[in-house]
Design a protein around this nucleic acid. Structure first.
Lengths: 166, 166
DNA sequence: TAAACAACCTAACGTTCGTTAGCAAGTAAT
DNA sequence: ATTACTTGCTAACGAACGTTAGGTTGTTTA
């Protein structure tokens, strides 16, 4: 709090004219980021497209949100554990709902014969882990741009490392 | 410290008969886990095998260490940031060296024509992110066993989601 | 023009934190 | 048998934490 106040150029106690508690900040960041992620993925939702296309769009949307809000994303991905009830439970429910977007795409891809995965839930987890690692190394001033990142990620996750013989 | 002492059934101050400081615990956990990871990957090192084989073995070794030390792994993966100098720098050097094992395998695979990836460094990061996410959901009593996890991971990372036409 | 509100201040609260000092008892080494 | 080391204890330290109380000042609203 004292650090935050310092960064704002005010006294620590003055922060409490604006928020009720330290945790309220955490809540606001977590749930605003959740909105961001939902907004982005809903904007690219297109159930008529192929699962491959849908997944590429979803990955791209996710990476966009992640790279545009690096610090808030770090909080969203790591600090939600410290939410108190009922926020903790609410947050997990949102996260599950978000994962289900991806799960549904995988499911469609399996049904259409596009995808072949050992385990559906496992696939989603692996995809999201690949996406969510970005925030630990991504730098806006770095040479790899968000579009390139999501392109590479889509390529790797869809085709794997193996030479593509098609 | 008081929580730790409580778990040990002694007083907080008594801990200091065994360690010099709280951070020493962090140092010990981080560097011991580093040893574990190096030990595991060096044990399966076989430069004569194909890159595909090598990668499968490395993934398996990594998953074994991760699943056998879930709590220490969480510390190793998340809390190393709080190491003070010179440990912080030393740790990062070790991590780089470890990543290089994987990078070398990818490089070999590209040279031999086994692999085809957009970006070498990026590939390693994505692989490791997939591996290191495990500790957030893996439960020893869960139904998915370490061997199954590394098998699924190898399959997904090598072949991707796409139906394999070979 | 008075009242209400917003945004800041100083001072201090109670709690928790990692840690030290000094001591007691048991065990091992000389 | 004496010494030294280990492992624990009680008591307390100073620092940092999130937060509250109460006041001042300037801006907005009735």
């Amino acid at each position: 709090m004292r650090d935050l106040a310092n960064a704002l150029g005010i006294e620590a106690a003055s922060i409490y004219s604006h928020i009720r508690s330290k945790e309220e900040i955490l809540q606001r960041v977590c749930f605003r980021m959740a909105e961001e992620f939902f907004g982005a993925i809903e904007a690219v939702k297109d159930e008529d497209a192929s699962a491959t296309e849908q997944l590429k769009c979803a990955i791209s949307a996710h990476v966009q949100v992640l790279t545009r809000n690096t610090e808030a994303s770090a909080v969203f991905l790591q600090e939600w554990r410290h939410l108190s009830e009922p926020y903790h439970t609410d947050f997990l429910a949102l996260r599950d709902r978000y994962e289900n977007y991806f799960r549904e795409i995988i499911r469609q891809g399996i049904a259409s014969g596009e995808f072949q995965v050992p385990d559906e839930k496992f696939a989603v987890l692996t995809i999201l882990s690949g996406l969510n690692w970005i925030h630990t190394w991504y730098k806006p001033e770095g040479k790899m741009k968000p579009a390139e990142i999501s392109g590479n990620l889509s390529a790797m996750l869809l085709n794997g490392l193996k030479t593509n013989l098609n």
